[in-house]
């Protein structure tokens, strides 16, 4: 149980590197970011920023991005999740989904922005597929989250 976050994050990294066929590839969810959000809300508060940075570095090496690029966005996500943790945990499904969509969009925007600043050409239109599918993925995650973490009920 203690290793559950690490194992699921590794799985998320593998899924992120897994190629998807043709038309679906555009809608590959941001597995790692969704997993990060889940653990930032579900696990004890000790879970955190350094993990996000390390996982981000692994993603950077996998995808050939600048070192620190993915970690930056993930860290901000984890920070926001932990800052507003009690509130986010108490949110009903719809509200939490909206928040997660905003977080994923923020992450995607940071990646896009850093790509732009470092002089790489990136198509903008295809950037929103992962946000949409990641939000849908969160709906699934949320349904397990409610039942699964009964031992740690949300509290305002």
């Amino acid at each position: 149980m203690r290793f559950a976050p690490i194992l699921t994050l590794l799985l998320a990294i593998v899924l992120a590197a897994m190629p998807l066929p043709g038309a679906v590839a555009q809608f590959k969810p941001d597995w790692v970011a969704v997993t990060m959000i889940f653990w930032a809300l579900a696990s004890p508060p000790a879970f955190g920023l350094v993990t996000a940075l390390v996982v981000g570095l692994m993603l950077d090496v996998l995808s050939g991005a600048l070192l620190g690029q993915h970690g930056f966005g993930l860290m901000l996500i984890v920070y926001l999740c932990r800052k507003f943790r009690p509130r986010l945990r108490a949110f009903p499904a719809l509200q939490s989904t909206l928040v997660v969509a905003a977080l994923l969009a923020l992450n995607e925007f940071l990646l896009l922005w850093i790509d732009g600043v470092s002089g790489r050409t990136v198509p903008i239109g295809e950037r929103w597929g992962p946000v949409a599918s990641g939000t849908l993925l969160w709906l699934l995650v949320w349904s397990t989250f409610d039942h699964g973490s009964e031992q740690a009920p949300a509290r305002l």
Binding site: M1, A42, S43, P44, P45, G48, L49, Y79, R82, K83, R85, P86, R89, S149, Q151, A152, P153, R155
Partner: peptide
């Protein structure tokens, strides 16, 4: 793990976070 008490310390440590 994840006791309610701990969750509230998450707020208290917000600054250092």
């Amino acid at each position: 793990m994840g006791a309610p008490g701990k969750a509230s310390t998450g707020i208290g440590r917000g600054g250092s976070l």
